[in-house]
C-alpha cells in the first residue's frame, strides 16, 4: 500500500508524468508540405506560380517536424492527450498528414484547397482557424516558418484569430502542473533566449533544434495506413482572408559580382590556392 502511495507521489512530482491525473492536452499541429529541393521547381511563364516537375519530391517542412515531435513529447508527459495534425492544400498534402500520423499523431485533417497555387499566410491561417475554432484545443504548435515561402506568419495570425497567447521561435516549453500556464524560452538574436510564461491556451511556433524528431515506428505506420483523414472544406471567416500580396515570382536577377573559377576540378583547386597565396592567407 505504502509502495503504491509512494509510486503515485512520484508520478505526481516527476517532470515526465506531470499530468498524471489530468485528462490530457488537446493539441493541434499545423504541418506544411514543401518540395524537398529547390532544384526541381520553376516559375510559370506568367510569373504567377511555382511549377513542380516529375522529379519534385515533397516532404514535411522541417520546422513542422520539430513542432510535431514537441507535441508528441507533451502527449507523453500528459497521458490522455491527443495530437491532431492539420494541413492546408491540394490533394498532395494528404501525404504530409499521413506522414504525421505515421510519426505518432492520433488524427489527421486535410483542409482542401483545389488549385496548387500560392496560398497567403492570412488565407492559410484563416482556413485553419475556421476549423480549429470549435475544437477546444489547449495547445497549437507549428514550425517557425515554412521552408518554401519563408514568411513567419501563419502561427501568429492563427493565434490572433483564435485569441490564443502566442510565442515564436520557441526552443523550450514546459506546461505548469495546473495546466493553466506554459513557460517558454524563445530564441532571439545572438544566442540569447527570452524567457516568458504565457496563459493557456497558447500557440507556439517552434524553432529547429528544440528536440530530435523521431522516426515513424512500424506500429504507427501500420495504423496510419488504414486510418481515415478528416476532410475539411474551407470556410474563410472574413473578407480579407483570401487576400494575397505576393503578385509575381521570378529568379534573382543580380548574379552578384563574384568570379566563377572555371576549368577542371584540379584547375580550380590550383587557382584557389593561387588566390589564397596572393592574399597571403597561406
Amino acid at each position: 500500500m505504502l509502495a503504491i502511495l509512494a509510486a503515485l507521489l512520484y508520478l505526481c512530482c516527476s517532470q515526465r508524468l506531470k499530468g498524471a491525473f489530468s485528462t490530457g492536452m488537446n493539441i493541434l499541429v499545423c504541418v506544411k508540405q514543401v518540395p524537398d529541393s529547390a532544384d526541381t521547381i520553376s516559375v510559370s511563364e506568367d510569373s504567377s506560380r511555382i511549377m513542380y516537375n516529375d522529379g519534385t519530391v515533397f516532404r514535411l517542412n522541417r520546422y513542422d517536424e520539430f513542432a510535431l515531435e514537441e507535441a508528441l513529447l507533451v502527449k507523453e508527459c500528459f497521458p490522455g492527450s491527443r495530437v491532431d495534425a492539420i494541413s492546408v492544400g491540394p490533394e498532395r498534402v494528404r501525404q504530409a498528414v499521413r506522414k504525421a500520423l505515421e510519426t505518432g499523431a492520433d488524427h489527421g485533417i486535410h483542409v482542401r484547397v483545389e488549385s496548387d497555387e500560392y496560398v497567403s499566410p492570412l488565407t492559410r491561417a484563416s482556413l485553419i482557424a475556421g476549423f480549429a475554432r470549435t475544437r477546444g484545443y489547449d495547445l497549437i504548435l507549428t514550425g517557425i516558418m515554412a521552408e518554401d515561402d519563408m514568411e513567419c506568419q501563419v502561427g501568429q495570425i492563427l493565434a490572433e484569430k483564435l485569441s490564443f497567447a502566442c510565442a515564436t521561435s520557441v526552443m523550450f516549453q514546459e506546461i505548469s502542473g495546473d495546466e493553466k500556464t506554459i513557460y517558454v524560452e524563445r530564441e532571439i538574436e545572438g544566442g540569447v533566449r527570452e524567457c516568458i510564461t504565457l496563459a493557456m491556451p497558447a500557440l507556439l511556433t517552434i524553432q529547429s533544434g528544440i528536440n530530435t524528431p523521431r522516426y515513424p515506428s512500424l506500429s504507427n505506420v501500420m495504423r496510419a495506413r488504414s486510418q481515415e483523414i478528416e476532410v475539411a472544406d474551407p470556410q474563410p471567416a472574413d473578407s480579407l482572408s483570401m487576400e494575397r500580396s505576393i503578385i509575381g515570382l521570378g529568379y534573382p536577377k543580380d548574379a552578384g559580382t563574384g568570379e566563377f573559377l572555371e576549368g577542371t576540378p584540379s584547375d580550380k583547386a590550383r587557382e584557389l590556392l593561387g588566390i589564397l597565396h596572393e592574399l597571403s592567407m597561406i
Binding site: 491561417a125 513567419c152 502566442c166 524563445r186 538574436e189 487576400e243
Partner: peptide, 24 residues
C-alpha cells in the same frame, strides 16, 4: 524590423488591424 521580436508581433498586429502583412 524583421528581428526575433519584430516578426513575433508584426503578424499579430496585422491580424488585429485586419490588414495584410508582408515579411522579410
Amino acid at each position: 524590423p524583421h528581428t526575433a521580436s519584430g516578426y513575433d508581433f508584426a503578424p499579430l498586429l496585422a491580424a488585429a488591424l485586419n490588414i495584410p502583412c508582408i515579411t522579410a
